[in-house]
């Protein structure tokens, strides 16, 4: 992503990595490793990101304006000051909501077509 995303629809559909990173940041700012652990926990280990995928996604999300680096550093007693913390931007939150809505519509469609019954 070379330029900032102008509207949420422009960024859709998101890849699993980007969607899960945004979801991990939905409840507050986190550093890279915390995002990785959160994604793994949220997906019951189904989405495992390595450092390359994580920071590659972070780079593109920063460029797109979906996340921002936090200026404030945590208390050095509590955490390593060298870590960078990231948080959702307003646009990022809207993109996340739009993607969740899109997935929800697809889920409703799958239910309407009886696909879910077969899966369950």
């Amino acid at each position: 992503m070379s330029d900032a995303v102008q509207s949420p629809q422009e960024a859709l559909p998101l890849t699993p990595a980007v969607f899960n990173i945004l979801l991990a940041l939905a409840d507050g700012e986190k550093h890279g490793y915390a995002i990785m652990l959160d994604v793994e926990a949220n997906t019951s280990g189904q989405v495992k990101m390595g450092p390359g995928t994580l920071y590659g996604s972070i780079k593109r999300m920063l460029a797109g304006g979906l996340i921002a680096e936090c200026d404030e550093r945590p208390d050095p007693e509590l955490d390593d000051q060298r870590r960078r913390y990231y948080s959702l931007t307003w646009l990022g939150r809207r993109v996340l909501a739009a993607e969740a809505q899109r997935l929800s519509s697809q889920l409703a469609l799958a239910q309407a077509k009886g696909v879910l019954l077969r899966v369950i």
Partner: peptide, 21 residues
């Protein structure tokens, strides 16, 4: 092996995350 700009920007953080892992 990563491109220089990417490595300079994120390399230390990737290493830190990998070490944590």
């Amino acid at each position: 092996s990563y491109p220089t700009r990417f490595r300079q920007e994120y390399g230390p953080h990737m290493l830190q995350v990998f070490r944590d892992c």
